[in-house]
Design a protein around this nucleic acid. Structure first.
Length: 199
DNA sequence: CTAACGATTCGCT
DNA sequence: GCGAATCGTTAGT
């Protein structure tokens, strides 16, 4: 077990952190059960200039307050009243950047994750979206604000190196409301992976 | 206090 | 491909 150190998250380049999270392993431990997956797809959000970001123009609200903390915390929120979306808080205190984790290649606790996902049979669809992976790993508001080296949720370096030419950069999903910022190529995924989300 | 709306997913056509 | 589900957050009255 080799959890990422806090300084991994404290760079002021959230796009770089977003790319570097590809190939890392996101894990949760709940009721004696370990579930995890390799991060296949991410999106970067910047509080400073990015209209798609919840903390756009550094606007702080009760929901997004954890984004203003130092990097390495979990930012979880409820979307469409149904889905919990998991983000990695980045940068230093007062700089509200975050990385949305959008897809995983399932690794540990396959049967448990399938059960949580209503006995889905297609392994490629098990964690192929931000709401899906949260359901599979049982990520919820109980994780809001936890550090990513805690005992309940954490991210490991498992020695997987994703070469730059294997990283695809595309515009982010579901942020049409952000105007020109919706065009930024801040969605990243591992080329040819069958575990990537799709609209 | 009220109302509009999502960083989505699933089922049905 | 399309539309419903579903409710906390947010901004405005």
């Amino acid at each position: 077990m080799n959890k990422l150190p806090q300084d991994f998250y404290q760079s002021d380049d959230v796009v770089d952190i977003s790319r570097k999270l590809l190939g890392k392993k996101l894990c949760t431990f709940y009721e004696g059960q370990l579930t995890s997956g390799i991060i296949i797809e991410t999106e970067a959000y910047s509080g400073r200039n990015d209209k798609a970001c919840h903390a756009h123009a550094n606007h702080k609200t009760p929901r997004n307050r954890i984004m203003f903390s130092e990097g390495g915390h979990a930012y979880v929120y409820l979307c469409y009243g149904i889905h919990h979306l998991f983000n990695v808080v980045a940068n230093t205190e007062g700089n509200a950047d975050a990385v949305l984790v959008r897809a995983l290649q399932p690794v540990d606790g396959l049967e448990i994750m399938k059960k949580r996902r209503n006995d889905i049979s297609n392994i490629h669809r098990l964690c192929a979206g931000p709401g899906m992976l949260s359901q599979a790993l049982n990520i919820g508001m109980q994780h809001y604000g936890l550090t990513l080296w805690s005992d309940q949720i954490w991210i490991e370096d498992v020695g997987v190196a994703v070469p730059d030419d294997q990283i695809v950069a595309k515009p982010r999903i579901g942020v049409d409301y952000a105007g020109e910022d919706a065009l930024l190529p801040w969605r990243f995924y591992i080329a040819h992976s069958p575990f990537v989300s799709h609209k």
